[in-house]
Design a protein around this nucleic acid. Sequence first.
DNA 1: CGCAGGGATGTAATCGATTCCATGAACGAA
DNA 2: TTCGTTCATGGAATCGATTACATCCCTGCG
Lengths: 348, 348
Amino acid sequence: MASIKDVAAEAGVSVATVSRVLNDHPSVSADARARVLAAVEALGYRPNAVARSLRTDQTRTLGLVISDVLNPYFTTLARSVEEEARALGYSVIIGNADEQPDLQDHHVRSLLDRRIDGLLVSPTDGGSPLMLDTARGGTPMVFVDRWIPGVDVPVVRADGRAAVRDLVAHLYGLGHRRLAIVAGPAATTTGSERVEAFREALAEYGLPLPDAYIGQGDFQAESGRRVTDTFLDLAEPPEVVFAADNLMALGALDAVRARGMRVPGDIALAAFDDIPWFVHTDPPVTAIAQPTGELGRAAVRALVDMIEGRPPQSVTLAARLVVRRSCGEPAAPTATSAQPPVTNRSTS
Amino acid sequence: MASIKDVAAEAGVSVATVSRVLNDHPSVSADARARVLAAVEALGYRPNAVARSLRTDQTRTLGLVISDVLNPYFTTLARSVEEEARALGYSVIIGNADEQPDLQDHHVRSLLDRRIDGLLVSPTDGGSPLMLDTARGGTPMVFVDRWIPGVDVPVVRADGRAAVRDLVAHLYGLGHRRLAIVAGPAATTTGSERVEAFREALAEYGLPLPDAYIGQGDFQAESGRRVTDTFLDLAEPPEVVFAADNLMALGALDAVRARGMRVPGDIALAAFDDIPWFVHTDPPVTAIAQPTGELGRAAVRALVDMIEGRPPQSVTLAARLVVRRSCGEPAAPTATSAQPPVTNRSTS
DNA sequence: CGCAGGGATGTAATCGATTCCATGAACGAA
DNA sequence: TTCGTTCATGGAATCGATTACATCCCTGCG
């Protein structure tokens, strides 16, 4: 593969001049520029990004460590991240942690070894020593979707509180009183927050959230199946299962179907994270939709701001409820039936 | 960030010695090795992969250019590719072409600039000049899923012919006679092959494949919707729509539903590529499943063989039909009804 | 006419590793 | 004792770029 020296020789100039025209430095004569460009063309020369990075100490590459590539939510996120990065002149390297802290660390380390300019992470856990060191060590870093409390890193995420409240209102309006949740790992912010938001919303309606109705999942389909099974084995099974992500909802659907039961007739189902497939499932699944594309773009902008020395901004966007049929027939247009009882409302 | 010089200074040895212990070269005294290791530990030193790559002319990185990250098929493929690569000591950088040849070229170029050791591609088109040059230029390269005819590059793919024949048998057995296909881009091998296989299988049953029943899609959901719409507008619409990939099947489902029609009652649907969601759609979709995981692993092995100087192997695996409910009630266990008429059969 | 200033260009240092080659020490054989 | 090996180590070249600095030439002004 041709190097800058070959180009210099071909054009009859020094490597410095070649480098100057490549980086369009002003003081190059029109003549020299033309000869260099011709040589570049003739040799099919492409600058070696490795060598350039070594010298300039920047790779114009961003690392993105996501929790699970098989999850359409993260895949959508990855896509918008790559698009925005490309628009800003950066490439992105994706690492898939598969919800395993070890794998996550592996990818962070490998990305750091490659000297990426900045890191976008959606942590699978509460923060390994490596992650903490990296954050403190001055590597530009932004958390997206999930974050680690107590670490001074900008966070770009969606707030599902209001949407969860809307969901509970919807369920209450439909007459459901026994609501259960398939939670994500407590070590992740999204894992614990969604349970909290759910609990608070239930409280507004005077509804309890017994421990038996909190199932511990890990954001992957199999755990949704398992937890839903234990729910269904209960003496008094819940009327609704709320899965804290789309994959666990899929598992829940499997578990219900495996028993020959129907959604929403025998049990209702709702999910956090909306994805195109939910329109086509049987029945279409009521879900809380995050503004995934905007999340990815905002995260990249924050990270690039950091890299280029501008102050980065944490961003919180709102999620919203998308009602479909998995919880029963949609509520009547008048929303009065969904109002919480007055007494409980005032105590919240 | 600490460099090898810092480690050398800390350990009181030369950089050469540090490099030797890092690459466990045999002739280093136990004493020196211990001191270097201690220094590495103390400084939290990690070798700069950029510098190392420049010197050794290898990055231990594979490039993977896929046609569409939002397609679960490719996402599953990407995952298995990354796993196998990791097992063999390589990282992978994924580029998403989004079915656009320009974007595909952009990623290939960017990967080449980064001096990846080898390239895995699932081409979106018949081969840009860049792609052809790259293949000829000696960069280790393997095609996966789709390939470009006439280019001397190993191919790892699934052969769907037999499964398509099984599908047609299934449809014929169910009494369907007017079968249509939503094809992929003719420039892709999977686009044209699936149509051909379908046409041949129909011929075995004496069924025609009129032009009006061949819709031109682009492997993305929206095209499935559009094509299905034109099918439904026909004076004599088909009884079955076979989508050449899962995303177009999704679009077809949308189109059918938008008209208030039901699958399979009003029209039957089948898809190429099976994905977990098809179990949960309404109705569950009959599909042709590829051994995606094995495909990804075989592709990586072939590519690494090439990189490391061993002769690479093209691999073709079989796809298989998974019958669900989207084409009508499953055929009776006795498969006799699905036999093609004798006369036609002998001509095939 | 002489000199300052600025534009075009080249030489060489540099980034952080790997690796060839030279050197010196230790040791066994003659 | 001396010589030839072998082992451990360090010095320095090298990979392919970028860039500080030096040089040379031209132009314009006093």
